[in-house]
Computed example of a mutant assay.
Amino acid sequence: MAAVKSPLSDSDLKVVGEALQGALIDLIDLSLVAKQAHWNLTGRNFKVVHEHLDEVVAIARAGQDDVAERAVAVGVNPDGRARTVADRTQLPQLEAGYLDDDKVVAAITDLLAQMISRFRERIKATDEPDQVTQDLLISITSKLEKQHWMFQAQT
């Protein structure tokens, strides 16, 4: 099987690969957590929050595809398997069952803040080894920060 030859040195590839894999796990789990909340949401602000969660899912899904494709482009195999995500996620998980809209807004606000912090660490880590990957991470972080602001405004 042919492998993609990386344009990066081995040491740079290690840093970039870790950043991309961590971002992939965050984004896959964000899409799952937001969809879980979307399906089980209740409360007086149901419609607004329900639709807003779909925006988060769309951003997460687009971002995970971009991150995975960037990984392959630089010679790293992305691992988005369910077991990998479950074992390595750092995102707090929601309770099972129906979820009050106020609790969902608070949980998603907190979850996005944690993700943004990790994405900003990845942005710093990729500054020297690969500014193309850094640019991708900056773009995704901008979208996550916008969603964080919008959820935070609802608290």
Results as ranks from 00 to 15, higher is better:
residue 28 I to Q: 07
residue 149 W to E: 08
residue 56 V to E: 03
residue 126 T to C: 14
residue 86 A to G: 09
residue 68 A to L: 08
residue 141 T to L: 06
residue 41 L to P: 08
residue 144 L to G: 01
residue 88 R to H: 14
residue 71 A to K: 03
residue 60 A to S: 12
residue 56 V to K: 06
residue 143 K to V: 02
residue 115 M to K: 12
residue 64 Q to S: 10
residue 91 L to F: 08
residue 145 E to M: 10
residue 124 K to C: 01
residue 142 S to L: 05
residue 100 D to P: 03
residue 27 L to I: 00
residue 131 Q to F: 10
residue 128 E to W: 03
residue 43 G to D: 07
residue 143 K to W: 00
residue 21 Q to S: 09
residue 147 Q to P: 03
residue 123 I to W: 07
residue 77 N to T: 14
residue 111 L to E: 02
residue 94 L to C: 05
residue 95 E to W: 00
residue 35 K to H: 15
residue 15 V to L: 09
residue 12 D to L: 02
residue 141 T to E: 10
residue 100 D to T: 03
residue 152 Q to G: 14
residue 48 V to I: 08
residue 66 D to H: 11
residue 118 R to T: 11
residue 132 V to W: 01
residue 67 V to K: 05
residue 137 L to S: 07
residue 5 K to M: 01
residue 46 F to P: 02
residue 124 K to D: 15
residue 70 R to W: 00
residue 136 L to N: 04
residue 119 F to C: 06
residue 25 I to H: 11
residue 3 A to C: 00
residue 123 I to H: 08
residue 28 I to C: 02
residue 118 R to V: 09
residue 66 D to E: 14
residue 129 P to C: 09
residue 59 I to D: 12
residue 100 D to L: 13
residue 123 I to Q: 13
residue 134 Q to G: 13
residue 141 T to V: 07
residue 7 P to S: 06
residue 83 R to Y: 03
residue 75 G to L: 04
residue 29 D to S: 07
residue 126 T to W: 08
residue 27 L to M: 11
residue 33 V to F: 03
residue 11 S to D: 14
residue 83 R to E: 11
residue 99 L to G: 05
residue 27 L to H: 10
residue 36 Q to M: 02
residue 63 G to R: 07
residue 154 Q to C: 01
residue 138 I to W: 01
residue 122 R to C: 04
residue 15 V to E: 04
residue 119 F to V: 08
residue 70 R to I: 01
residue 110 D to R: 13
residue 7 P to R: 06
residue 133 T to H: 02
residue 68 A to S: 11
residue 148 H to P: 05
residue 10 D to I: 06
residue 100 D to I: 11
residue 85 V to M: 06
residue 97 G to V: 09
residue 111 L to I: 12
residue 13 L to R: 15
residue 95 E to A: 15
residue 56 V to G: 02
residue 21 Q to T: 10
residue 88 R to T: 15
residue 63 G to D: 07
residue 102 D to E: 14
residue 63 G to L: 04
residue 29 D to I: 07
residue 113 A to Q: 12
residue 148 H to Y: 13
residue 37 A to K: 05
residue 102 D to T: 15
residue 99 L to C: 09
residue 7 P to A: 03
residue 64 Q to G: 00
residue 60 A to M: 07
residue 91 L to I: 11
residue 85 V to S: 01
residue 135 D to Q: 13
residue 19 A to V: 09
residue 29 D to A: 08
residue 43 G to H: 10
residue 124 K to W: 15
residue 40 N to I: 09
residue 11 S to H: 04
residue 42 T to L: 11
residue 132 V to M: 12
residue 26 D to F: 03
residue 11 S to W: 00
residue 84 T to Y: 06
residue 120 R to W: 08
residue 147 Q to K: 15
residue 133 T to E: 05
residue 30 L to H: 05
residue 48 V to H: 06
residue 64 Q to T: 10
residue 19 A to Q: 07
residue 63 G to A: 10
residue 103 K to S: 15
residue 132 V to F: 09
residue 35 K to V: 04
residue 104 V to K: 01
residue 94 L to S: 08
residue 21 Q to R: 06
residue 147 Q to R: 15
residue 55 E to K: 12
residue 123 I to C: 09
residue 67 V to F: 02
residue 27 L to R: 12
residue 60 A to H: 01
residue 123 I to T: 05
residue 9 S to K: 06
residue 23 A to G: 14
residue 136 L to G: 07
residue 131 Q to L: 11
residue 143 K to E: 15
residue 133 T to F: 04
residue 128 E to S: 13
residue 70 R to V: 04
